[in-house]
């Protein structure tokens, strides 16, 4: 259609030149688009898959054709990289990209259209022509594949431009996010359930697990406590606290909590852990005592 030399009096040519200039002076990380060297009305583009979607990290190439009546008539878009959302080498149905042909307006540009195209990637195709509705996993596989290289398409000149765009986009594109199988649930809640041991065996099991971590937690508590001026205490508080608690018995297991309230919320967990550990230790001691006394009781029972 258009030859090497352009008639700069042609308003479409003038406009397109301005868009090229604007595109180059305000580059975006989300897309890149340039006309072919020998045809101002034929562009190549690549868009970045939108964040927080199955397309994140992907690089999708496509082709833009600008009509001779541009910007009165809309540009047409087609994707070339398999993506699972739009068919490749098929003009993207303009209605679904919100650019109804009858409502296209000259105040829009290639940039506006590309931004809209990115925004439409994660939307539901609703059976629109030229749309695909692949599963997320399939799309994600295509996302990973899309990074390898630009698709093979068109003349060597076009391919060269696509390869350049690909390299440029790849240097800026974030990695494809790793899928985390499942989120780890909060551990403290399960621990609090262990607190009241039903029998001695369970209690012992808990103790053996808790013991190694206890000193560390105790030290941290001491550090924290020392920061509180009111509690300036030369003696190792961990030891004192354990004595006091052991004296008052299991009903007082909440005792250390008033101290923890002074601390920041993050430290609260440490105190809780320490309290749980201490309580379990005390409970074990009490159980041992109880075992002894019950042993005596058994003797008495035997005797009776």
């Amino acid at each position: 259609m258009a030859e090497d030399k352009y008639n700069m009096k042609n308003p479409a040519v003038k406009r397109i030149m301005q868009e090229v200039k604007e595109m180059q002076s305000n580059p975006s990380d989300d897309f890149m688009s340039l006309p072919l060297e020998d045809n101002l009305f034929e562009w190549q583009f690549a868009i970045r898959g939108p964040r927080d979607t199955e397309f994140e990290g992907g690089i999708y190439h496509g082709r833009i054709q600008l009509p001779a009546e541009y910007p009165f008539k809309p540009p047409s878009f087609m994707l070339l990289t398999p993506n699972g959302r739009f068919e490749t080498q098929t003009k993207i149905c303009l209605s679904i990209s919100n650019h109804h042909p009858e409502h296209w307006q000259p105040s829009w540009s290639v940039r506006t259209a590309l931004v809209a195209l990115i925004a439409f990637m994660p939307t539901n195709p609703n059976g629109a022509l030229g749309s695909l509705d692949y599963k997320k996993e399939e799309r994600r596989a295509l996302t990973i594949k899309s990074r390898q290289a630009a698709p093979k398409y068109g003349t060597p000149d076009r391919q060269k431009l696509m390869d350049e765009i690909h390299e440029n986009m790849l240097s800026k594109a974030p990695p494809v996010p790793q899928l985390t199988p499942s989120e780890s649930p909060e551990e403290p809640s399960s621990n609090s359930e262990i607190e009241p041991p039903a029998n001695s065996q369970d209690a012992e099991g808990v103790v053996t697990r808790e013991v190694p971590s206890n000193p560390e937690v105790g030290e941290r508590i001491i550090e924290e406590v020392q920061e509180v001026p009111d509690n300036a205490n030369p003696n190792p508080t961990g030891v004192r606290a354990s004595r006091e608690v052991s004296a008052s018995g299991p009903s007082d297991q909440l005792l250390p909590k008033p101290e923890t309230r002074v601390q920041k919320p993050a430290d609260d967990r440490l105190f809780t852990w320490a309290a749980v550990g201490l309580t379990i230790a005390i409970l074990v001691l009490l159980l041992k005592k109880f075992m002894k006394s019950s042993g005596h009781g058994a003797v008495f029972l035997d005797g009776s």
Binding site: P11, K14, R15, Q18, E19, P71, P106, S107, W108, R111
Partner: peptide, 10 residues
């Protein structure tokens, strides 16, 4: 918020 180049030709 119109981009200059989209209207200046007109």
């Amino acid at each position: 918020g119109y981009t200059d180049f989209t209207f200046e030709d007109f």
